[in-house]
Amino acid sequence: MPISDQLLEEGEELWHAQKTHPFVTELADGTLDEAAFRHWVEQDYRYLLDYARLFSVAGARARDERTMTDLVSIAHSTLAEEMDLHREFAADYGIAPEELETVQKAPTCEAYTGFLIRTAYEGSLAEIAAALYPCAQGYLDIAAHAAERADGEHRYTPWIENYTSEEFRDVVGRIREFVDRCGEQYPGEHDAMREAFLTSARLEHQFWEMAYTREGWAVES
Score class of each variant (00 low, 15 high):
residue 164 T to E: 11
residue 3 I to E: 08
residue 132 L to K: 06
residue 8 L to W: 04
residue 23 F to E: 03
residue 96 A to P: 06
residue 135 C to Q: 02
residue 128 I to W: 00
residue 133 Y to T: 00
residue 6 Q to S: 14
residue 39 H to D: 07
residue 126 A to T: 06
residue 79 L to F: 11
residue 48 L to P: 00
residue 25 T to M: 01
residue 217 W to T: 11
residue 53 R to G: 05
residue 52 A to S: 06
residue 100 L to I: 08
residue 187 P to H: 10
residue 137 Q to A: 12
residue 197 F to M: 04
residue 140 L to R: 13
residue 47 Y to M: 03
residue 201 A to M: 03
residue 49 L to E: 14
residue 215 E to Q: 15
residue 57 V to T: 14
residue 158 P to R: 06
residue 194 R to M: 07
residue 195 E to W: 05
residue 198 L to G: 09
residue 22 P to D: 02
residue 197 F to L: 02
residue 30 G to C: 06
residue 120 A to D: 10
residue 196 A to N: 05
residue 133 Y to L: 02
residue 86 H to G: 01
residue 5 D to R: 13
residue 140 L to M: 09
residue 149 R to Q: 01
residue 9 E to Q: 15
residue 173 G to T: 08
residue 152 G to I: 05
residue 172 V to T: 01
residue 158 P to N: 07
residue 90 A to N: 11
residue 163 Y to H: 07
residue 152 G to E: 05
residue 149 R to P: 00
residue 56 S to A: 15
residue 214 R to V: 08
residue 101 E to H: 06
residue 77 S to V: 15
residue 40 W to M: 13
residue 141 D to I: 03
residue 163 Y to F: 14
residue 106 A to G: 08
residue 36 A to V: 10
residue 195 E to V: 07
residue 41 V to Q: 08
residue 131 A to N: 04
residue 32 L to S: 01
residue 110 E to L: 11
residue 44 D to P: 03
residue 214 R to S: 06
residue 187 P to L: 09
residue 220 E to H: 09
residue 6 Q to V: 15
residue 4 S to A: 10
residue 53 R to D: 10
residue 92 D to N: 13
residue 128 I to V: 12
residue 204 E to K: 02
residue 159 W to K: 09
residue 144 A to N: 04
residue 69 T to H: 11
residue 56 S to V: 10
residue 169 R to K: 12
residue 167 E to P: 04
residue 28 A to F: 00
residue 107 P to H: 06
residue 15 W to P: 03
residue 200 S to A: 14
residue 217 W to C: 09
residue 119 T to H: 01
residue 98 E to W: 12
residue 59 G to K: 12
residue 118 R to K: 12
residue 193 M to S: 06
residue 105 K to Y: 01
residue 143 A to H: 06
residue 85 L to W: 09
residue 73 S to R: 14
residue 136 A to E: 13
residue 73 S to L: 09
residue 94 G to K: 12
residue 132 L to R: 02
residue 186 Y to K: 07
residue 174 R to M: 09
residue 122 E to Y: 08
residue 85 L to K: 11
residue 114 G to V: 04
